[in-house]
Design a protein around this nucleic acid. Structure first.
Lengths: 202, 202
DNA sequence: CAACAAAATCGACTGTCAGTCGAATTTGTT
DNA sequence: AACAAATTCGACTGACAGTCGATTTTGTTG
């Protein structure tokens, strides 16, 4: 009951690295077991399928991020700081730049999608709670908070997590965020800091 | 120069049907050539790879829709009608309900994604032109039109083209559309008619 | 028509890969 | 020691995308 879990984690670790560096489709089970130094049967003793393993790898990533976000939410910071903190927990740190890059690559659509949907499910409730707090403080003014938060996350993912984007995209997104949440114009420019890095056309 | 193109179209037709009914991943080249009654080599005489064929299948779908949309745009209809018409050309007709369903299935992520990006590229310019016209008529008031149109399309796809969605999602989306384009509140409810069909939770 | 080239077709073969299965080994328990 | 449960092994299967040289069909030209 101990040895098994350790092996499982070891395999997840190896897969995490390989999936991100080469893409999920381009990583074979044979490669994983070779790096781990185990036989095919052992691999399938721990995972039902390659895809199920991908789910596990992603679940682990998301859980770490959600953990950090929950910490921020429970803190005593002012609402604005909480928003920044929660978003920051979800955005890849600077030492994880490769992740950002890897997920944009065309061979990783499947992984990218699974991450997107799992992340959405985990983060929407947390961010919604922060926004709720913001409404009580008079920072925001809107109904249907979870739906609106979900929309903004879908938008940011669709706009910035793949391909190029222009300055105008960022500006309009900030405008959209203010209007959707009923924030005063010009108060949500801070979002921009989380985006600048990817696209740069024009 | 004639026979070849006919065969090519025949293969695209078969693939179109199979991809939608079983999913792209679950359809093998062997199955396609068996239905067509040709040999492997012939298939690869017409398509470089299975994925390139998928691109061609999708390109064909999109081109038809874009064609219809261009017709609407060039017509003499009032702006509001043009918007409705362009959106309608893109939405699957009633005899294509299966398509809508098929694309939601988990095994079709790749296809779904390719369609989404190709459709975006084709439709954004057309819809933008219609919105531009709307601005001139005083229906809308906004800058950065293509960016805003793109956002709305990304949003609608992310919200409604997969999984469930609630009544609140639709309402908030309409609200977002009005605010993003600077339309008067309550004037864009007509969008709702294009959505009702999929999700129904609560 | 004969001769030749280009277009189209054939299908056996290769290599890769996910997943299976029964046997063997290790570990823990009584 | 005896037995069971957990873990590991690796040869094997089946499916599948893609290759390649040979062959047939079609179109062209003197």
């Amino acid at each position: 009951m101990k040895k098994g879990e350790k092996r499982r984690q070891e395999l997840l670790q190896i897969a995490y690295r390989l999936f991100l560096s080469q893409g999920y489709e381009n990583t074979s089970v044979d490669q994983i077991i070779e790096e781990a130094g185990i036989a095919k049967g052992t691999y399938y003793y721990y995972f039902q399928s390659k895809e199920q393993m991908l789910e596990a790898v992603i679940g682990r990533m998301i859980e770490e991020e959600a953990e950090a976000a929950r910490g921020v939410l429970a803190s005593e910071l002012p609402v604005a700081q909480k928003l920044v903190g929660i978003i920051a927990s979800v955005r890849p740190n600077q030492d994880e730049q490769p992740i950002e890059e890897a997920l944009k690559r065309p061979e990783n659509v499947l992984m990218h999608n699974k991450i997107r949907s799992q992340l959405l499910e985990a983060i929407v409730p947390l961010l919604s709670e922060a926004v709720e707090e913001g409404v009580r403080c008079g920072l925001f003014a809107c109904n249907h908070i979870p739906e609106r938060v979900r929309m903004l996350l879908i938008l940011s993912s669709g706009l910035f997590d793949e391909g190029e984007f222009s300055r105008a995209d960022v500006d309009v997104f900030i405008d959209a965020a203010e209007k959707l949440l009923g924030a005063a114009p010009g108060t949500m420019g801070f979002i921009g800091q989380f985006i600048r890095q990817g696209g740069a056309e024009k």
